[in-house]
Design a protein around this nucleic acid. Structure first.
Lengths: 248, 248
DNA sequence: GCAGGGACTTGATCTGGATCAACTCTCGCC
DNA sequence: GGCGAGAGTTGATCCAGATCAAGTCCCTGC
């Protein structure tokens, strides 16, 4: 593991409050690994042997069933994923693959389970992390059930703008095909709907989003704190929305 | 609170392992209340002041947005709900209403937060509960994104049969309109699809489900441990599927 | 017992979004 | 520098599921 990485992990909400001795014990069994883009890190159904911490790159969490596949989340540095499965010592519910060349720290889940049993501060951090993840998926499910495709796209674009600091223009953080899958629609549908959204105050130029009329877009998206956040409870983990890459 | 209720709560996985003194402290601030059917217990966005424990009756958790509404879960005795919001001291993401006359214990969430900070066993229980809830919603989201209406119905019916002990015949635990909403479709669509499912090995007689050809139904539903369970990690809480009422 | 209302069903129609197919553009790679 | 391969777009068509509208049945409350 690289020297700068340890403090970065230590500063994550999940590891911030635990005893130094326990942190060190946890990191003792950890190891870092580099992966090329497009590599499958785990397959749904596998036993949860390691908590994963993304230090560089990006990881897609996705699910499959009966030949179909869908994106559930994208995790970027510094973020953890698959905490719940590690804790329950249960099979992963999702598969994971790298979207880019990535550096990932692997923490044996047995160590994890041992440590929060003797470090209450860490246990409390885990509680907060999991509660955040839970609420994040609930938001996602609400969006899927209550909103149409069009509304999901509009609110996604607004949400990303908010994450970028309410910029009117920013870059999409993920490929459109992945975004479509995350939002529960086909790439064709996303592409077409984006075109028609020009009448509602937002335009796309390649990967660049330009909000031309925020009021109009908001009227369509009806952003809702209980679906779109802002989560004061932002999870660093598994259930996070694809995050913005930075805008200008 | 009634004499038999305290031990019932104590035996819940969530409260089973904590110190007796802490359990008593927690219960000190608790109070029971009876509600008629159809009463709104909380509204999404409200501050999370109480953890709710259903002792009798049934509670529907649902979400709404822009005039639409959908069922997210049904909680039956003995089960808790809205743990995550209590822990984060954040607004509820869902509303709740009684489906029948219900008896509910209310636990001040501030007490809850205080207790798991000083009782590691309780903290561990909370961790397991939340991890279970998280995984449960992930399963639900996977079903919504990966399966068609028809497949969701078929797998729901199989899952309920499994919960009833693999009985070929059992009663639906909830109204069909609620089930439709839970499964993300309209009542009309549910009704029609149920009819066409007779060709796939399952028949409905009113509220009675009769599986006539389990193999055929399974071929359609393709039940998957990573979507349908069985959850060894069964949550007692918020995210549970409408449970079966008992079969014969 | 009777009236009223809600759950459920059934039918007719509409439409959002999927599917299938073709074509362009870009970018990494030989 | 040319050549795939994959991302994205666009068009044509199809279909699952929503919507609108009746009508039946059952249960409840007067």
């Amino acid at each position: 593991m690289r020297p700068h990485e340890l403090p970065e992990i230590r500063h994550l909400p999940l590891f911030r409050d635990m005893l130094q001795a326990n942190f060190e014990a946890l990191m003792h069994g950890a190891y870092a690994q580099a992966f090329p883009a497009g590599l499958e890190l785990m397959r749904q159904g596998d036993p949860a042997d390691f908590l994963h911490v993304v230090m560089e790159g990006a990881v897609e969490l996705y699910a499959h069933w009966g030949g179909r596949e869908c994106t559930m989340a994208v995790v970027r540095p510094v973020g953890t994923f698959i905490l719940a499965a590690c804790i329950k010592d249960a099979p992963y519910l999702m598969s994971a693959r790298t979207l880019e060349r990535s550096r990932i720290i692997l923490l044996p889940s047995s160590d994890l389970r041992a440590v929060f049993r003797r470090d209450t501060e860490f246990a409390v951090s885990v509680i907060h992390e999991l509660a955040g993840c839970y609420r994040s998926v609930v938001r996602h499910a609400k969006g899927l059930k209550l909103r149409t495709s069009r509304e999901r796209i509009a609110s996604y674009l607004l949400r990303q703008s908010a994450l970028a600091g309410n910029l009117a223009s920013y870059g999409l953080p993920v490929e459109k095909r992945l975004l479509a899958s995350y939002l529960g629609m086909t790439p064709e549908n996303l592409s077409r709907t984006l075109k028609t959204l020009e009448a509602d105050g937002v335009k796309l130029d390649g990967t660049r989003v330009i909000i031309t009329d925020r009021a109009k877009l908001s009227a369509l998206a009806q952003p809702d704190r209980l679906i779109d956040g802002p989560d004061s409870e932002t999870p660093s983990a598994g259930a996070s929305l694809p995050r913005v890459q930075g805008g200008d």
